[in-house]
Design a protein around this nucleic acid. Structure first.
Lengths: 146, 146
DNA sequence: ATTGATATTGAAATTCAAAATCAAATTATA
DNA sequence: TATAATTTGATTTTGAATTTCAATATCAAT
């Protein structure tokens, strides 16, 4: 978490951008949560530290965090853009529960390898990828109804 | 294509819905194109057959086609919902070119199998999944610039 | 073919997240 | 601390998705 902060401060400096209280507050809030947050989610969290922070600033700071490769987008299929930690986090796939909306992060090396092979087959140079599996998690499949 | 039409007509009947000229025109237009179309794309295509058709009807008909499992959603990452053929089409992954936006459809059985295994590991019951690989296609990577 | 109950249509309005605007406030550098 | 540049937050705007509603079309039963 120290490293992310240093990385972000450096990123700002290199871009000629300024380190503001708001950006720091928002970064800290983002780093502290392990959830997949939307702009609004993080806005509500950050506001607890500084009630004057605006949605627009959260929106813009998340964009910067994505540029700085500290955050990345996640789409869990509900049309709302969410963000997750990226800095020093390995790529992973998502298992998304359709009932409780929990998101499980999973890695499978052999899937990754097969993807590479698939790309080679089409002479396609992969830049990024995403795998989302929608279904019912263990907890929810135990329940009788809903 | 005959089969899809029969399937859709049957779907409508079972739901107590009506077969209208517009729905038929839109279905035909959808079946004829092999592209990944947005509502607007299909609206423009369908309008060539019947200039009085409205966007809302195309929107609603595509929704019905998705319910009837004739169409399914594709998200190529630009925030616009597109649709592709689903009826009697096997599940496939997408290789999406970031430069020319071409979409390659690919299937890899071993990836599918590994996904199943991954779900088992988490006692997760998969319902659907999607794999999108973003990168540069063969054609575009040959070019010197852009 | 006609009827009548019900579904559908298209134009327009609404919704809602994402993005842009702008005057006032803040920051970094000299 | 003065200055130039960036940032902020309230607000507005955008644009795709979705809904509304009065007029129209469909279809099963006459």
């Amino acid at each position: 978490m120290k490293a992310e902060r240093a990385h972000f401060f450096n990123f700002l400096k290199e871009k000629g951008l300024k380190l503001t209280q708001q950006r720091e507050t928002i970064l800290n809030a983002f780093l502290k949560t392990e959830k997949h947050v939307s702009v609004e989610d993080l806005y509500n969290i950050a506001r607890r530290k500084d009630s004057t922070i605006g949605q627009a600033t959260v929106f813009r700071t998340l964009k910067l965090l994505a540029e700085a490769e500290i955050a990345s987008h996640v789409d869990i299929g509900d049309g709302i853009r969410r963000f997750e930690h990226r800095y020093n986090h390995k790529h992973h796939d998502h298992l998304i529960c359709l009932k409780c909306h929990k998101v499980i992060e999973a890695v499978d090396e052999s899937i990754e390898q097969r993807q590479e092979a698939l790309c080679k087959k089409f002479s396609f140079q992969p830049v990024s990828h995403r795998l989302e599996i929608f279904g019912v998690c263990k907890k929810c499949s135990g329940k009788v109804k809903n």
